[in-house]
Design a protein around this nucleic acid. Structure first.
Length: 284
DNA sequence: CTTGCCGCCTGAGAGC
DNA sequence: TGCTCTCAGGCGGCAA
């Protein structure tokens, strides 16, 4: 599934292949994919027709095209979303949801099997180039403006478990279940540790590990971009090799050899090493 | 105000 | 073989 590094790969692909191409007559093939565009699918299509993307930006797992009309085309891939640039004559994908013809004879296609993702046209909120619905999303750890000390302070204000805080997009954005587990494994911290119980060194170390694992994933994720189309496939490359905890239930910890355990958390899975990441004595 | 849980979706894979 | 069940999980919305 697409995570921050995969979204960044897509952003770069759109920058290379969508910027400067005028958008033609947009077709919404599944209304759920534009459900957050409150005025409806017809308005969505009308506002994009004739617009030209001038840049592509990203915060966390949200990305958006800045259009010459002043509008912003926001995309979130959810669990299974893809943004493809395909020749117009190529057959439709099974789960094609939105078609955006481009002036160079190709099409920007939003493909999304499970429809957790969405597209919408928005305008700037606090900043003219940042969609208003993204205003509440915190900076991500790869943003040049990201300050680790600020995140330490934000963690301090939370009264919850450290993994829950990492997954809270209003605290820090772009961290999903996989990178949270990986950063916690590298830090030797159990997901259930209290945010308030962490020392400054532990919190700063955790943040550095989040940055490291995302940067390493981004390097590998670069291979998912292929030639003339934007290939979004979060399951390729990095997932095969780089993971130390996520999905490795019963496999030996790469540090100490103890079997990785899977625990239910927030209706999903958390993977950790029971020896390197001891559970807190009393959960609160 | 805060924290925490539910439901939305489809397909893969396991079990019977 | 074909059915049912479980799992994957980001995030808006809402309950406590």
């Amino acid at each position: 599934m697409p995570e921050l590094p995969e979204v960044e790969v897509v952003r770069r692909g759109l920058e290379a292949h969508a910027v400067g191409r005028k958008i033609g007559r947009v077709e919404v093939l599944h209304p759920r994919s534009v459900r957050r565009h409150v005025p409806g699918a017809a308005d969505f299509a009308a506002r994009l027709s004739g617009a030209v993307p001038v840049s592509v930006r990203r915060r966390g797992k949200y990305m958006w095209l800045v259009l010459d009309t002043g509008d912003l085309l926001l995309a979130h891939l959810g669990m299974s979303g893809q943004m493809l640039v395909q020749p117009a004559e190529r057959g439709d994908e099974k789960h094609l949801r939105v078609r955006l013809p481009l002036s160079d004879g190709r099409e920007l296609r939003f493909v999304d099997q499970r429809t957790f993702g969405h597209l919408m046209v928005d305008t700037g909120g606090d900043h003219p180039d940042v969609p208003s619905v993204v205003d509440h999303i915190a900076l991500d750890p790869l943003d040049p403006a990201f300050v680790p000390g600020d995140l330490v302070k934000a963690l301090r204000t939370k009264r919850t478990e450290v993994k829950r805080a990492l997954l809270d997009q209003s605290v820090v954005s772009g961290v999903g279940n996989i990178y949270a587990d990986e950063a916690l494994w590298r830090s030797g911290l159990h997901w259930g540790r209290s945010t308030r119980g962490l020392s400054d060194a532990q919190a700063l170390g955790l943040i550095a590990h989040v940055q490291d694992v995302m940067n390493e994933a981004l390097e590998v994720g670069g291979t998912t971009f292929d030639g003339l189309y934007v290939n979004v496939n979060g399951e390729s490359g990095y997932f095969e090799r780089g993971l130390n905890a996520y999905g490795r239930r019963d496999e030996p910890c790469g540090r100490c050899g103890a079997p990785i355990v899977r625990e239910a958390f927030m209706n999903r899975s958390s993977f950790s090493c029971p020896r390197c990441q001891p559970a807190p004595r009393a959960r609160r």
